[in-house]
């Protein structure tokens, strides 16, 4: 090797990397600020407000709270599962390659794309026992008096679930559809050649590939459905007699009553269920990242 002695005059250190890091920090700062000011501080302050045991005592003694917890549990279990079974089924329908099915899928998305108020009000109006279209038609066609859809607490909760499903179903169908489309066609072709029935194809090809997505989506939807305020509030407003509240609307009700510590307490009660799921979801997404990077 040639050993030419080259003088190496030292240069004034100019850290290239740190300029880029500095820029990174500057660009990250706006979001960090938003997070600190509108998430971290409010949440910390809210938790501090909810520190008194008395808040929980009055909360647990409030009969409305007990009903609300029952309602919420039912709402989550029934609405989320029903929604996902439907979404799983419909995703299978919408992946058929037909021009008219593509058009139908475009229409199918509307409930998700439009705001909640108009459509929920429309449904609320349809269900009005005296002059709503549902009971009118029931009377005209079958000569029966329809039930009081929104003044019977149990029926009203069922209707709220229906509204929730109507609004959220398209989104989750879309997600599951993308999951189905990601399954290689060859697997189905191979299954066909092997003589698999439609149900067997679902059981041995579709479901194994979709299971993770289905479970993750269900969990995510479970968290979000807990925060679904519109479906219940706009349909029943918690009425009659505050018997159709869920935790989300109850929290807001306490705010309207100017009982902020109760509002926070309502939320804190749900945290033992929410936080593990949030943690799980965060782990999932972060874990995914490590795989891709």
């Amino acid at each position: 090797m040639s050993a030419i002695a080259i003088p190496h005059p030292p240069l004034a250190p100019k850290r290239g990397l740190s300029t880029w890091q500095t820029w990174g920090l500057i660009l990250l700062a706006p979001y960090v600020l938003v997070f600190l000011v509108f998430v971290l501080y409010p949440v910390s302050y809210g938790l501090w407000l909810a520190r008194h045991p008395e808040s929980y005592k009055t909360l647990f003694e409030d009969p409305v709270f007990f009903t609300t917890v029952i309602n919420t549990i039912f709402f989550l279990l029934v609405a989320v599962n029903l929604k996902f079974i439907l979404a799983l089924y419909l995703s299978g329908f919408f992946v058929h390659e037909r021009r008219w099915i593509r058009w139908l899928s475009v229409i199918f998305i509307i409930p998700w794309a439009v705001p909640a108020i108009p459509t929920v009000y429309s449904i609320r109006f349809m269900l009005n026992p005296e002059w709503g279209v549902v009971n009118s038609l029931l009377f005209r066609w079958f000569q029966i008096d329809g039930p009081n859809w929104l003044t019977d607490p149990q029926l009203a909760m069922a209707m709220a679930m229906l509204v929730h499903i109507w609004k959220a179903l398209p989104f989750w169908t879309l997600i599951l559809m993308a999951g189905r489309l990601a399954i290689p066609k060859e697997l189905y072709e191979a299954a066909s050649v092997d003589g698999a029935s439609a149900w067997q194809k679902f059981k041995y090809v579709t479901w194994p590939s979709m299971r993770t997505l289905y479970v993750t989506s269900t969990l995510l939807s479970l968290i979000w459905t807990l925060g679904d305020f519109n479906s219940v509030y706009l349909l029943t407003g918690g009425q009659p007699a505050d018997k159709t509240h869920v935790l989300a609307t109850l929290g807001i009700r306490y705010i309207r009553l100017d009982q902020l510590d109760h509002a926070m307490a309502t939320i804190v009660v749900a945290l033992p269920f929410v936080l593990p799921m949030v943690y799980f979801m965060m782990k999932r997404l972060s874990g995914d990242e490590q795989k891709t990077s």
């Binding site: 809210g46 968290i223 979000w224 925060g227 989300a248 609307t249 509002a263 939320i267 949030v278």
Partner: peptide, 11 residues
């Protein structure tokens, strides 16, 4: 992931 209605109260 935090439900929007939950964040509404402290917000």
């Amino acid at each position: 992931f935090i439900p929007a209605a939950f964040l509404a109260v402290p917000m």
